[in-house]
Amino acid sequence: MAILILGLVLFLGMHSTRIFAPGVRANAVRSMGLIPWKGVYTLVSLVGFVLIIWGYGEARYNPTWVWVSPGWTRHLSALLLIPAFVLLVAAYIPGTHMKAKLSHPMALATKIWAFAHLLSNGTLADILLFGGFLVWSILYYAIARRRDRAEGVTYQAVSVQRDVIAAIIGLVLYGAFAAVLHEWLIGVRPFG
C-alpha cells in the first residue's frame, strides 16, 4: 500500500504545483528554465504513475475490503463513464462549447471517473486511488476556476461541430475501452 500512496503523492503532487503552489512552479521555471522544469515535471509524474500502477496491482492480490458494492453499481459506473470520456476529449479539442462553459473539462472527467469507480469498488486500495483522485479533482477544479476568474481567462466556443466531434470521439473511445481496453490494461471486464 505504501507504493500506491507514494505514487499518488508524486503524481498528484506534481499535477498540483501550478494550482496549489504557483510560487514553487514559478521559482523552478525561473531558476532552471521552462523546458528543464517540464522535463522534471514529466519524469516525476511518470514515476508517480508507474508507482500507482504497481502499488494498486500489488494491493489487488491481497485486498482489504471496506465494503462490497451491489452488482447494479457496475452498470451505473459504466453509464457515468460515458460523459467522462466525452469531457476528456473535449479538453483537447479547442473551441468546444463544453470547454467554454466548464473551463476545465478534464478535471470534471476525472471527478466523474473517480466517483464512478468508488461506487463499484470497495477495497482500501480503491478508496485510496479513486478517493485521492476525486478529492484532488474537486480541489483542482475549484481553484482553477477561481484563478481563471481572477486572471480574466475565458475559453471561446468556435462551433457546435467541435462539440459533436468531441462527443463522437469520446463515445468511440468509451466503446473501445469498455469492450476491450479496460480488460487488456486493467484486467477487469466492465460488463462481465
Rank of each mutant, 00 (worst) to 15 (best):
S16K: 01
L51W: 02
D148G: 00
V40P: 10
A90R: 02
V86R: 01
G187E: 05
R145F: 01
P190F: 10
L80W: 05
L102T: 00
L76V: 14
I5N: 06
W136F: 04
N27K: 15
L134A: 02
I127R: 00
M1T: 12
G131L: 07
M14G: 01
L81I: 13
L81G: 09
Y56S: 06
G7Y: 03
I35M: 13
P36F: 08
L43E: 07
I53C: 14
G132P: 04
G122M: 11
T73G: 08
I169L: 11
A166H: 05
P22V: 01
V86S: 01
P83D: 00
L6Y: 09
V50R: 08
K111A: 09
A176I: 12
F177D: 04
Q161Y: 07
M14V: 05
L185H: 06
I19N: 11
A2F: 10
I165F: 08
N62S: 15
I112C: 03
Y140C: 06
L139W: 01
M98D: 03
N121M: 08
G95C: 05
L129S: 04
A125D: 03
T154S: 13
V153L: 06
Y61H: 15
Y41T: 03
I143Q: 13
T123A: 14
I168D: 04
H182F: 12
S69T: 12
R189P: 13
R145I: 05
I143M: 15
I19P: 06
I35C: 06
P94S: 10
A150W: 04
S16D: 02
A26E: 15
K101P: 05
P105N: 06
S103M: 07
W72F: 12
I52F: 09
S159N: 09
F133T: 05
A179Y: 08
T123E: 12
V89F: 02
A150T: 04
V153F: 01
G132D: 02
A179G: 11
Y140F: 12
F130H: 04
I186D: 03
L102I: 00
K99H: 03
R189A: 14
A90Q: 04
V89A: 03
L134N: 00
V47R: 07
Y155G: 00
Q161N: 07
Y174I: 06
K111W: 09
Y61M: 12
R25A: 12
G48M: 02
A116R: 00
P22N: 02
G131N: 01
A90Y: 00
Y41L: 06
L124S: 05
H182E: 09
F11N: 09
M98N: 04
G23C: 08
V188R: 15
L8F: 03
I165T: 13
R25M: 15
K99R: 08
L34N: 14
Y140A: 09
I93R: 06
T96P: 03
S16N: 03
W67L: 12
Y61Q: 15
K101R: 15
A179R: 12
Y141L: 07
S16I: 00
R147S: 10
F20E: 03
V188S: 13
T64S: 10
L12A: 09
S69W: 09
W113G: 01
W184V: 14
L171Y: 05
D148T: 00
P94C: 05
I127N: 01
A21R: 01
T154H: 12
T154P: 05
G33E: 06
I82L: 14
